[in-house]
């Protein structure tokens, strides 16, 4: 197990694995997303209460779900950076933070546009919406802090501490709808219970969540490769790779 852990720390090894995985992640991810969204938009039945506006769920929930789980992954990577000083963990955090920020923004934007016809307002300062906005600012903070410190090691540690401190926001986002009165409704999907929607609604939703996960995986591999190339530009294997005509 430790051997895998050490191998994972090798940028060269990761670069190779990422290259093999990327086409699969991209094309399977796209296929799942297209299937899920197409099904959800055109074939899933409408909701008895919200009519067709609920079709926003097929991108709102995947974005919001990924936004939070990307942050959790960043927190794990932050822990690895602080305890094991693994370079690749910091590469992951730096590569993924902008993706997380975009996903959080999309969750907020689609939520606002969905809120207007259903609730009657674009925005309300309830606990769920506010904690999600804090998540967006945390992502901005991580990006800014990483860019502000030029020394690779201190930047990695500072960013890891910020990510770990911010991780308390994740349970707050998740349980805000249960702990406090909010306008946002409680979760439709719970691990322990059957989803409170019929299969012809949740299956396409599941497809688009999985699809977005894989596309996120593709983006992560791509962006981590870029970051590795920048950092390891002086090593022999990168020089060989460049000479071999990579792109």
């Amino acid at each position: 197990m430790w051997q895998i852990f050490h191998k994972l720390g090798s940028p060269k090894w990761f670069f190779g694995i990422a290259s093999t995985l990327m086409p699969w992640l991209l094309w399977v991810g796209l296929a799942l997303m297209v299937a899920g969204i197409g099904w959800g938009l055109a074939f899933a039945p409408q909701d008895y209460l919200q009519g067709n506006s609920y079709r926003i769920i097929f991108i709102h929930v995947p974005s919001a779900f990924l936004a939070q789980s990307v942050y959790m992954m960043m927190a794990v990577a932050g822990l690895v950076t602080l305890v094991w000083r693994m370079k690749l963990a910091d590469v992951f955090v730096k590569a993924v933070a902008p993706v997380g920020a975009v996903l959080t923004f999309l969750a907020l934007f689609t939520g606002a546009v969905w809120g207007k016809p259903t609730w009657g307002t674009w925005w309300i300062w309830d606990a769920r919406l506010t904690s999600m906005l804090i998540l967006l600012f945390l992502y901005f903070g991580v990006i800014a802090l990483g860019a502000a410190i030029s020394d690779e090691k201190s930047s990695a540690r500072a960013v890891a501490v910020l990510v770990l401190v911010g991780v308390v926001n994740i349970p707050i986002i998740k349980y805000s709808v249960e702990w406090w009165n909010t306008l946002h409704q409680p979760a439709t999907f719970k691990l322990t219970e059957k989803p409170s929607m019929p299969a012809e609604m949740w299956v396409p939703l599941l497809l688009s969540v999985l699809g977005l996960y894989l596309i996120f995986g593709w983006l992560t591999c791509l962006r981590m490769q870029t970051e590795i190339l920048v950092r390891e530009g002086r090593t022999r294997w990168v020089k060989e790779l460049v000479q071999a005509g990579g792109n």
């Binding site: 009519g51 506006s53 926003i56 991108i59 999309l106 934007f109 689609t110 969905w114």
Partner: peptide, 14 residues
């Protein structure tokens, strides 16, 4: 989409 089109399509476009 029974009047909800602009909302739905704005989200997907974004």
């Amino acid at each position: 989409m029974e009047g909800h089109g602009p909302y739905v399509w704005a989200c997907y476009f974004m």
